[in-house]
């Protein structure tokens, strides 16, 4: 049967996820099903960012992409991808490792409930940025500052350094950072710094190889819509997407990141390598959060540590190729 998937994009209409990623997804689905299944993206988001999953379950739209931080209670398994210092600099290798790891260990748990997962995607890992002339190179530097942090676990880690933390949606960050309300911001990748036009306010970035935070996203459609699609077409879609679409998005994202990084270098942002001591201290603060997640997985009958280890191994293997 012919079906049109109403796929929502919560980003602003001119954002590349709405303009490039979803049209690509639509094209792949349409090609795979020889035009029987189409994707339609409404001109403007039909629901607020936190409401994407509920919107799909209730039938506001058929499919959506959602920031996994908003899926903490529905989809606990996928949260490992955003634990402190499990993040990586790149998007492509991480996205693929994430997708494969999730398929291997967690997919059978049917966490997405009334929806079917089509793809996972990771932004580039986030860094620590200073808005003042002095780079942030130690716990003490963080402690004496007002910091905007991505919400969730990262904000807790930064708060534990003694820093005065402001946390909330990234839109708020634009307001707070650009106006000097905070002295630094933590957790967003360089591509978001330029996206939100914060380059001019950001003076330096402290870089670790292991990232304090890496935002990940889920793409899903409702079971109802999925079941309306013929089995042949469902198989065709699965085969056409798989890790290949995930890799494509990651590669696109990495290109965007490279351009953003170049823009920041051009603007004179200083890039400082974080010291191992600083990293070790931050990691120690983040450790309980990792343990928490592993314990939560224990409750679900999943070896959380094995998931984390496999994720890292797959990432390294991908990089090695």
């Amino acid at each position: 049967a012919r079906e049109t998937i109403l796929f929502n994009c919560f980003f602003p209409p001119q954002h590349y996820v709405c303009k490039d990623f979803l049209p690509e997804l639509g094209e792949r689905i349409e090609t795979a099903t020889e035009g029987r299944v189409k994707l339609r993206v409404p001109p403007k988001s039909l629901a607020a960012p936190p409401d994407q999953y509920d919107g799909v379950v209730n039938g506001v739209m058929d499919g959506a992409v959602q920031f996994n931080g908003f899926l903490r209670s529905q989809v606990p398994g996928v949260q490992f991808s955003m634990l402190p210092f499990l993040g990586h600099a790149d998007s492509e290798m991480t996205s693929v490792a994430l997708w494969e790891t999730y398929q291997e260990h967690l997919a059978e748990k049917d966490e997405y409930g009334e929806t079917v997962l089509l793809a996972l995607f990771a932004l580039n890992g986030g860094d620590i940025f200073s808005v003042t002339d002095t780079p942030i190179t130690s716990i003490a530097d963080l402690a004496e500052r007002k910091i905007w942090s991505v919400p969730g676990v990262t904000a807790n880690v930064i708060a534990e350094t003694g820093s005065s933390v402001v946390s909330g949606p990234a839109v708020q960050m634009l307001e707070l950072v650009s106006k000097g309300v905070v002295d630094g911001h933590v957790g967003v990748p360089q591509s978001e710094v330029t996206q939100y036009k914060l380059t001019d306010y950001t003076k330096s970035a402290t870089i670790f190889d292991e990232k304090i935070f890496q935002a990940t996203f889920s793409f899903f459609v409702s079971k109802q819509k999925w079941d309306a699609i013929s089995e042949t077409d469902r198989d065709a879609i699965r085969a056409a997407l798989g890790s290949d679409f995930v890799r494509w998005m990651g590669a696109e994202q990495d290109r965007i990141f490279e351009a953003a990084h170049a823009e920041m270098v051009e603007a004179g942002v200083e890039f400082v390598d974080g010291s191992p001591a600083f990293l070790a201290e931050l990691k120690a603060l983040g450790e309980p959060r990792v343990a928490e997640w592993v314990a939560q997985m224990d409750g679900m009958g999943i070896d959380g540590q094995a998931v984390i280890d496999d994720f890292e191994a797959r990432y390294q293997a991908n990089v090695g190729q």
């Binding site: 039909l46 209730n58 039938g59 739209m61």
Partner: peptide, 24 residues
């Protein structure tokens, strides 16, 4: 427009209302 999907329309209404009311 959603093929007489009332659940979707009601959920959309609720989301819009609460999003505007609970808006910083």
């Amino acid at each position: 427009l959603r093929g007489w999907n009332w659940s979707g329309a009601l959920a959309m209404t609720g989301q819009q209302v609460m999003e505007a009311a609970a808006s910083y």
